[in-house]
Amino acid sequence: MELSLKRRKKTTIIPGFSLTFGYTMLYLSMIVLLPLSMIIVNTLSMSWSEFYETITHPRAVASYKLSFGTAFVAGLINVFFGTMIAWVLIRYEFPGRKIIDGLVDLPFALPTAVAGIALTTLYAPNGWIGQFFDFKISYTPLGIIIALTFIGLPFVVRTVQPVLQNLSKEVEEASASLGATRFQTFVKIILPELYPAMITGFSLAFSRALGEYGSVVFIAGNMPMKTEITPLIIMTKLEQYDYVGATAIAIVMLSGSFIILLFINFIQWRMNRKFYH
């Protein structure tokens, strides 16, 4: 865990090590590390029973399931469609390609609250899209999935795109000349090359979706036990000045997302080991 001031043997004539090291550590500590450590400090001040009760409250448990579940589904949808869009943008020429390519970044650029109210209005029962469905979309978990899919799309497209771009054409040709059909080539040769990028894209989209607040609060409807996401529970507790409760839920959420990200990293590490040894 220690960041040591000792540099490795290889010295360089480039100046500024102490200055940049000092500044980086100071700024990082002030803006990120010290504030984040408050979560741990505050949790430690809680009694175990108090902590346990807060985090296992049925409303909280329902929110974990909802948050993790919807983020997971949205991530999967994004992996599928994101990869398809990346493929279409890289491999095909068609009118409007450049515009679509640019629009993929919209969720990065558009404030989440703006996306939230726009999607809610569109998918509301009387909205442009919602009116065509017999069932409710806005104010249900389905609506949450739509909002999370919206914000996660660019993560997958932008990680898969460069890999697809750099894929060697020769490998596909080798597969074809060995007698494979185009479908076989895609499944056995191209997809395995894309898996690492798809997993990275998924984990980025997933972790963003898990913590997402702005675009979801509007479309979720926020019904306790049904459409209340974990960040909203934290928010509600804060509004009631229940800082301790908010912190307890926050630590569950942080731990959950770290465990999942570690797991994804582990899978990826194993895949990379195979490729590059």
């Binding site: 060697s168 040709e173 080798a174 000349s177 060995l178 007698g179 494979a180 056995k188 040769i189 090359e193």
Partner: peptide
């Protein structure tokens, strides 16, 4: 049978799987 300049081996497959590919498909 085509042998490519940069070999174009399938890097996610073992040597065995590479050679078997044409028969498996």
């Amino acid at each position: 049978g085509f042998v490519f300049q940069h070999y174009a081996l399938f890097r996610h497959m073992t040597v065995f799987e590479n050679v078997a590919y044409g028969l498996k498909v």
